[in-house]
Structure formats: structure tokens, C-alpha cells
Amino acid sequence: MSNCTVTGKRAAATTDVTMMKCCFQLGDLRRALLSLLILLCLASCAARTVNVQGSYPRPNIPAIPLVLGVYYGEGLSDFVYTELSDRGEEEYLVSSGDTHEVLFNTVLPAMFERVVVLDSLEEAAARGVDAVFVPRINEFQLGMPQKTRLDSYEVWVRYNMRLTGADGSYIADWVMTAYGKATASSFNTAERGINDAAVAALRDLASNFSLGFTGVPDVRDWLQRRLSQ
């Protein structure tokens, strides 16, 4: 009997150890699953970033025989638009600074005899430019299909364009708007739709800017004075 009891205790002890191991393994699994769940939740809750990327054709227009300095400062290079969800949480971060620089670096050399990209406004006079162009984004709006109930992603941008002399004197200051849309059913992801709508808006800006630049009253007057000298 005693042997039997001992055997039974041993057996029980063995079972307890197995149970403990099993509980330990289950606990590990539970923790791992919980961590995974938290990670998935964090990933789904985090705002998605869209770095707008696109290529733009060079405009076919006669170049103005002047040297233009361009300064990509605050409000353009670092511009990031934040789209909020219905609950007020950050949903998409649309970064378009780099693609704006690509756009202006394609468009401006076709519009002017020579273009100089300035690191600061102070170096304009030393670089021998005739004028300094400073583009800036004033407002950015994004239309998402789930919010507008339309079958397209839409981007609307309002710019402030400023043209000064090399010494910083006023030449012109005007507002421009750009609009682009991309059909939602053509894209698998919202990021792709936002990107293509933004690229369409920038292309709209490029066409309107390159054809309308000499028509801005203050720019036209300055060009007449400058080119007649």
C-alpha cells in the first residue's frame, strides 16, 4: 500500500510538473498573442505616411532671358498635411516637399535662361540672380472617397508665390490654386490614390504656372521694365 501511495504521490508530483510546464507554455503563448495583438492595434492605429512621388514633363514654352534664383524654404520643403479621421485621430500624413522641389526644378529651367537654387535668401545678390522666386503652400485639402462619397481621391492646394529682387525688394506676390483627382476604383490602396491625385494637382500647377507666369500683372510690368533695359 505504502509503495502504492508513494507511487501515487510521485505520479501526482510528475503530473503537477507537467501541468506547470504546460501552464508556463500557455502563459508564454498568451503573452505572445497579447503582444502581437497590441502591435497589430498600434500598427492599425498609427497614421499612414504618403511621401508623394511623381515625374513631371518639361514645359514647351519660350524661355525668359533672365537668371532666376529659387528658394525652397519653410512652408514648402517641410510641408506635411495631416488628414484626420472622423474621430479626430491622425489618419494620413501627406508629405509633398520633395516632389514640389522636383516639379519646380523641372519647370523653372524651361521658363528661364538659367535657374539657381538658393540655400538662403541672403546669398541671392552674391549669386547674380535677376529675381528670387519663393513658392509656399498656404492650404492643402484632401478628399477621400469614403468621406466625399465620390469615386475619386481629390487634392486641392493653394499656393502663395512671391517674386522679389535680389536685394529682397518686392516684385510680385500672388495666389495660385491647383486641383487633381484620381479615380478610386483604379487603386488597391488609399496611399496610391492620394499620391496620384497629388501628382495630378502638381501637374495642374505646373501647366497653369508656366503659361500664366508672364500674365501676372506685377510680373508682366517688371518683365517689361527689365527686358527693355
Binding site: 514633363p57 505646373a206 501647366s207 497653369n208
Partner: peptide
């Protein structure tokens, strides 16, 4: 449209 840019864009 690319070759003719910016003359055949939606606004121009």
C-alpha cells in the same frame, strides 16, 4: 499630352 506639355492639360 506629355510631349505637348503644358498645352493639352485639362485646364489649358
Amino acid at each position: 499630352v506629355d510631349a505637348m506639355f503644358p498645352w493639352f492639360e485639362p485646364r489649358t
